[in-house]
Simulated scan of single mutants.
Amino acid sequence: MSRTSINYIEFNCKRIEVIKAFYSNAFGWTFTDYGDDYAAFEDGALSGGFHRNAEAAAGGNPLVVLHTKDLEGIQDKVVAAGGTISVDIFSFPGGKRFHFADPDGNVLAVWSE
């Protein structure tokens, strides 16, 4: 039996330029534009994209969980880049994590051991 793993993640957003600046500043992601309504990203391990959709519902995407070795440092970068912490750092079996909303309201989480 072959395994299936996440290969690409796509988000809706309202403001591509704001989203690109946020993820670049908070996490160092790089972007490639494909027209005015799509920007693909690379985070060093996974690829994905943001599609401009003026009717995108904030927080309507699946929860994507990012991993870091410096949870508090990344939380500070998220806030400095314009994100909003929606769930402060909490412990769970295996580590700690927090949830945040990007400037367009997409909710993600970041965890660490």
Rank of each mutant, 00 (worst) to 15 (best):
M1W: 00
S5F: 00
I6A: 01
Y8Q: 03
C13E: 03
C13T: 12
K14I: 10
K14V: 05
R15V: 09
E17D: 15
I19E: 07
K20Y: 07
K20F: 04
Y23H: 04
S24R: 13
A26V: 00
F27K: 05
F27Y: 11
G28Y: 12
W29D: 07
D33C: 14
D33A: 14
D33P: 12
A40V: 08
F41E: 01
E42M: 13
D43C: 06
G44T: 08
L46G: 05
L46E: 08
G48Q: 03
F50P: 03
R52F: 06
N53C: 10
A54H: 12
A54D: 15
A56R: 08
A57Y: 08
A57F: 04
G60Q: 04
G60L: 02
P62S: 12
L63M: 15
L63R: 08
H67R: 14
T68M: 05
D70P: 05
L71Y: 06
E72D: 14
G73M: 03
Q75F: 00
Q75M: 09
V78Q: 00
A80P: 11
A81N: 01
G82S: 04
G83E: 01
T84E: 11
T84K: 14
I85K: 13
S86H: 07
S86T: 14
S86E: 11
V87E: 11
D88F: 11
I89F: 02
F90T: 10
S91D: 15
P93T: 10
G95V: 13
G95D: 12
K96W: 03
K96L: 01
K96S: 04
K96T: 08
R97P: 01
R97V: 03
H99Y: 12
H99I: 03
H99M: 13
F100H: 00
F100R: 00
A101K: 05
D102C: 01
P103L: 12
L108A: 08
S112V: 06
E113A: 03
